[in-house]
Every structure is written in structure tokens, then in C-alpha cells.
Design a protein around this nucleic acid. Structure first.
Lengths: 220, 220
DNA sequence: TATTTAACTAATGTCGACAATATAGACCTG
DNA sequence: CAGGTCTATATTGTCGACATTAGTTAAATA
């Protein structure tokens, strides 16, 4: 559990983090409008701070702005989810390839140890750690790519939207053990410095994950 | 030549576009610091407008902000270029795959006609149209993917950085006819609805392009 | 002289007020 | 009554001033 802790320096930082949290967790409903005045009273900061926070949310694709009209939180849709996972497949596939190229032996060993500890918890039925473990795994691969653009787009951007879908559509579901095996195979490929295989396995892993979620959506 | 013409609504829009242009074209040198006061007098707008413009530039990865310190334009480096093209390879590869899946027959026919017209110009040695043609081609593939995330990240983000490298490192160079043939093959794969091939050809096309630029860089 | 500390300066962060714009509703007109 | 125009109002866009922070220079002490 070594996910970077982005710490707030300015007031705008704090407001941005708080707003993002409230949006991802659905405290502010998806699709709703964001009123600058309303938020500035609610979060007890000036409109300038709220505006900056909203602008940052727009860069994460969590809200959409229209000039002279305002911002509203994105609506969650099956098509949106599909498009999101298509981009994940492309970017994280490349991340796995680059991780196989650039991760140090120590980083790989640490990741293997991490999977071992996850295995113990999953074995004991602690599904609580499932999502945290999954997040941690993907995070390490992405940072292991050593590609700043990849890291930024995924960690600062898409992952929050992914979490928003997971939380609000209730994707805590199973696929635990199978996903865990897939993680193992990906790490093995990286340990063998097999870029081609690492990318392919990661892409399939994300594709399966998408299919799994889609199946659930259609059953509701 | 049907690249979307993003039109400025607000003052911040205009300032953002102008600043982006000046940065990409090197009028404001890469790596230099952006002073809010200085820019607000130079562009004759208030600091609030400049701040918003700078924030948007940060979204495109054209500038980097540090709290309580300020923003500076990114520095161009060989490593940065490599990382940029790695992301392009992943995203545009996926875009080509999705274009083969989602583009209408008419869109494909239009793109083929576009290549024909480019061919005439290239044949006549009008290398002036080379870059415009290249931009147009890639733009159509990306929008043809019908994936909003892909379109946004590439068109609003990475492409400007790509242009910045091209302009400032003087990448007007040849590789015209070979690149043109590669474009042809990609369009053919899309016309045949061969997703796998379309993605592979696009990835190789971008990989070749990167290698070509790297070779040039090392020869200077 | 080297080092630490303390003021000073210049930049960014934040705020409240004013200007410009879009939306809704009333009113007019065919 | 349908359609369009015009006004009213609420929201966003913009501005200048003030607060706070980082970096620098100068002073003081060991």
C-alpha cells in the first residue's frame, strides 16, 4: 500500500480533493449541475477557489464545462464505461510493456511480495482488501513504466473516473481469484522481461474486467 | 482539411489559444518561466484570465505548475519525445482499431479521397502540404474512433506537444513518400474492417516516425 | 569567514464587487 | 392559440486589491 499521497498545499488543492471525493462517491449526484455560488458557500471558500477546483475536475473528465453556462458532473453510461476501458486497455497495456523494460529488479521483487500478501488475505476471504489490492497492483505497473504522460493521464485522470463507476454502480463484486491469477501472470511476464507478453496479458486482463462489468450491468 | 476549428468564446479562451500558439511556436522559449503579472500586461487581460489560461496549458502538459512558485514551460528533451511517442503509439493504435470498427463507409471513402489529393500534391513536390496532410490524416483516424477520451487526450493534449517538438526541433524533414504509403496501408486495413491490422500498422507507423526523429536528433 | 537568522521583496493565492451573458417568464402579435 | 420578442434575474466571466508565501539580501553571531 504505497500509493502516492497527494497532499494539499493551497486552499484550491483542498477544495479540489474534497470535491473530487464527493463526486466520485456520489455524494454529489452524477449528472447534476455545479453552481459556483452554491459550492462557495458550502465549502466556505471564494468563488475563485471553486472555479479553479472545477477547472481541475474538468481535466480529470469528471465534469464538463460550457462557457457562460456552467459545469455539470459527467453522466455515467454503459457507453462511457466501454470507452473508458478501451483507453485503459491501450494505456495500461503500454504501461505493462514499459514496466517490463524499465522496472528495477527490486521493484519487481516488491511487487511479487505484495501479491503474496494479497494472496494470504484473499485466501482468508478478506474481500475488503480486494479493491485496495487491485488499485495498488495497477498503480505499481503504471508508475513502473517510468513514463510521465502515462502516469499522469491514468493516475491523475482516468483512475478517478474508474473508481466513480465502481462505487456508484456497485462493482465490489467477485472475480477475485481469477483476477488475482491474472495479476500473477502479468508480474511473471514482467519478471521475465517479456514486453510483448506483459502487454498482451494486461490488455486481456482489462478486457475481461470490462466484460465482467458489462455483464453485471445488463443483469440489472 | 476539416480539422475542428475550436472557437474562442470568452477572453480566457482567446488568451489560452494565443499563449498556446506562442509556446508551441517557440515565441516564448521552452523551459522559461511564465510570470502572471508580466503576461497580464503583455496580453492586456487581468491576472485571473492569465491564471485560467495557464491552468489549461497545464492540462495539455505544455507547462508545469508549482504551488506558490509559478508555472514554467516544459523543457524539450529526447526522453520527453520518446515518452510522448510511446503514449501516441498506444492511443493511436487503439484509435485505428476503433476506427476500423466504427467509421462509416462514407467517412472511410472521404479519407481515401483525402489521401488521393495529398498524393497529387506530394507527387508535385509540394512538401508544404506534408505536415498539414499528416495532421489531417491522424486527426480523422482519432475522431473516427468515436471515443471521446481518446479524442480529448490526443487532440486537445498530446498533439500540441507533438507540434511543439516538430516546430522547435525543425522536423519538417522527408520521410514523405514512405509515410504516405504507410497512411495508405492503414486506410486500406480500416476499409477492410481489419481491426488487428489497422492497430498494428498504426503502431508501426508511429514507431518508425519516432525512430526517424530520434536519428535526426542524434545527428545534430 | 562561514553560518544562521531576520527582514525585505516580489511573486502567487485569495477575495469581494462589477460586467457580460444565458435562461425563464411575461407580454405582444399574427 | 402558436410563435416570437422583450424584459427580468440569476449565473458565469472579469477585474483590481489584499493576504500569504518563497526567495533573496543583509545583518548578526560564533
Amino acid at each position: 500500500m504505497l500509493v502516492k499521497s497527494e497532499q494539499a498545499i493551497t486552499n484550491a488543492d483542498r477544495t479540489f480533493f474534497q470535491l473530487r471525493k464527493d463526486i466520485v462517491e456520489g455524494i454529489i449526484p452524477a449528472g447534476s449541475k455545479l453552481s459556483e455560488m452554491e459550492l462557495s458557500t458550502k465549502y466556505e471558500v471564494s468563488r475563485a477557489v471553486i472555479r479553479e477546483a472545477i477547472n481541475r475536475l474538468a481535466t480529470c473528465h469528471l465534469v464538463e464545462r460550457k462557457a457562460n453556462v456552467g459545469a455539470r458532473i459527467v453522466a455515467l453510461s454503459p457507453e462511457g464505461l466501454v470507452q473508458l476501458y478501451q483507453v485503459r486497455e491501450a494505456l495500461e497495456g503500454m504501461a505493462a510493456r514499459l514496466a517490463a523494460r524499465h522496472m528495477s529488479d527490486k521493484e519487481i521483487a516488491d511487487m511479487q511480495a505484495l501479491l503474496d500478501s494479497h494472496f494470504d488475505k484473499v485466501k482468508d476471504g478478506q474481500s475488503y482488501y480486494q479493491e485496495a489490492g487491485d488499485v495498488d497492483f495497477h498503480y505499481r505497473i503504471v508508475t513502473g513504466s517510468k513514463n510521465d504522460h502515462l502516469i499522469s493521464v491514468l493516475v491523475d485522470g482516468l483512475y478517478h473516473l474508474v473508481r466513480m463507476y465502481r462505487v456508484q454502480l456497485g462493482m465490489a463484486g467477485p472475480r477475485v481469484s481469477t483476477a488475482f491469477d491474472e495479476h500473477r501472470h502479468i508480474v511473471n511476464a514482467i519478471a521475465n522481461r517479456d514486453e510483448e507478453l506483459a502487454e498482451m496479458l494486461m490488455r486481456r486482463h482489462i478486457l475481461y474486467s470490462k466484460n465482467n462489468i458489462e455483464k453485471k450491468l445488463n443483469h440489472d
